[in-house]
Design a protein around this nucleic acid. Sequence first.
DNA 1: CAGCGTGACTTAAGCGCTTCAGAAAGTCCA
DNA 2: TGGACTTTCTGAAGCGCTTAAGTCACGCTG
Lengths: 352, 352
Amino acid sequence: MTRRRRPTLDDVAGAVGVSRATVSNAYNRPDQLSARLRDEVLRVAAELGYPGPDPTARSLATSRTGAIAVLLDTSLSMAFSDPALYLTLDALARVIDPGGHALLLLPGGAFGGPAADRVLTAQADIAIVYSLPDGAPSLEAVRTRGLPLVVIDQPLLPGTARVGCADRAGAAAAARHLLDLGHRRFGIFAACSHLRPGGGALTVAEASAAPFHDVRERLGGYLDELGSCPVVVEEAAGLSAESAMAGAFALLGTSPRPTAVLCMSDQLALAVLAAARELGISVPGELSVAGFDDSPPASWSSPPLTTVRQDLAAKGRIAGELALGLLDGSAPAPVPVEVPVSLVVRGSTGPA
Amino acid sequence: MTRRRRPTLDDVAGAVGVSRATVSNAYNRPDQLSARLRDEVLRVAAELGYPGPDPTARSLATSRTGAIAVLLDTSLSMAFSDPALYLTLDALARVIDPGGHALLLLPGGAFGGPAADRVLTAQADIAIVYSLPDGAPSLEAVRTRGLPLVVIDQPLLPGTARVGCADRAGAAAAARHLLDLGHRRFGIFAACSHLRPGGGALTVAEASAAPFHDVRERLGGYLDELGSCPVVVEEAAGLSAESAMAGAFALLGTSPRPTAVLCMSDQLALAVLAAARELGISVPGELSVAGFDDSPPASWSSPPLTTVRQDLAAKGRIAGELALGLLDGSAPAPVPVEVPVSLVVRGSTGPA
DNA sequence: CAGCGTGACTTAAGCGCTTCAGAAAGTCCA
DNA sequence: TGGACTTTCTGAAGCGCTTAAGTCACGCTG
């Protein structure tokens, strides 16, 4: 059977005997025609199997695609095995969905986010980026395309909107908590910044030059408090559970062993917990562990994790609202928004 | 400052002093013009800040959007807390990415997948659906739009491509394994089919009428083997960890208690493990538990989970290949593809 | 030198829709 | 009764790009 050409607006117009504009109005501006004619148009359209205005053509005419591009640093499975990301994205999706926007996912490759040409050819009205390293090529592409941009947990670029959390304050609170418990020898477990291929120990100076804003901020928060206490910094080799475990073992293998480990995410902290269990190190007896995010698994572990709580859902929601604001033509929020953080003390930290 | 109109292909053409077609060719068909002119065009384009052909306009002209719509039954956070989904999607993304395709996510609402109009207005060349209930409105919308369709783990609709796993055989293998161990009193823990609002016990007949293909198949596989053994079927109230726990407790609270529980996913099986621990029921001493999927957490639990392994990465990859095939105009694969399954026996099952 | 293939670029016809400035036909009120 | 509105629908100009077909000059062949 010959596949018949799909009907277009013109076909419907012809069949009804009205102009194309009228059919368009039947779909987009019901108040512009009489109810009777509108029903007639819709009836004939259904009869013809016309599925409604073609999204692409409509986009060209209106210069709106209805999609929001999400630029990710990593592959989907890496990204989505992190509850912090999908909780944020879920909240984002809920905000933008009622307006008919969908999410266009642009996963990254090995490092640095999606390639520039993926961004240049993406059909989206706005970009939202999540934890891309400074200077990622995709950010440059967003710029040259002139796409509005919302950044999450990243440095505020001129002309963009930003939402983040009080990384520095949160990290400082965790560090202070451990100091108060009497700890004086610290380990810091940093998320992967690709400073060391394969991960490994970092000097403080190296770590402070990480290309990720949140890594720098959290590190800064820890160090602000820790003053002159001895600190070892370990960077995870990647985002996988395996990398985290490897880093955790390395950290617990240093001697003298830290009595407390500050982790830049719950995922890392859970890995430290697992490694400690395997090494027979009791937590919090011999080792205290603090996380960051307070994602759901933090409260399920044994012992449950002391961590810095940030309101991920709020972050996603705000990112969505900022995005919709930019699309509406409102100016970017002049002040970057920060969701508050709070220390949640559970069972994984105790006296030194 | 007045926002200057973004430059278009015509602007570049004018600036270089060539026709619009030539500039287009500079981007799309380098062999159609001399290398010198091409360089010149690209240079001027860069100078003007022209970011390359507008994706929407290009789509209209070529009737290709470069996006693949993924229709999900649930919200993003529900969807992505399931490793089985994101592992599949990750593999899918890797296959389609090299061709420049992106994923457009259409999350569902409470039940039944995305609304029809989300599908009708989505800019995508093809739809991939994952575990939608039979008769979902979005499936109808895909049809009326005439979008090519790839279904994963669902009944094959006419004119679509399908990939799934040998649900029935896998379920049967798990059941047989438990029978061989001497079990005679079974619980079946079914994924949420919304047959009971709030979840609960189901008769076999009810469960067999579930709107989800994989639920029906797995159930069928279990029952095929179990013959006349007494069986209680419990349906989870939702996809969340909480729903799973509630169902697990209900199942373990029936009397006489089953000595073996067959779960339709690892997520459910892990919940049963957790509930058993809380109730002080030893696994596998007093209770055997089997899962389905063999997602990563299955091997991390204690005891590690006996489960039916399916190659999720392969499923995603094949779905991607089928999609690319449909886009190339190849006819839908005549025979639905099934990835093989195999029983992985670990520590959660033992003699009755 | 007629004939012809080739390389390099242009012409122009769309792709399917939105939208704004009218036109035609009532409606209302002084 | 006639001007001022309203309501309802149409005409036509785009939106920014792709691409088949066509033009033109040039070098080559026999």
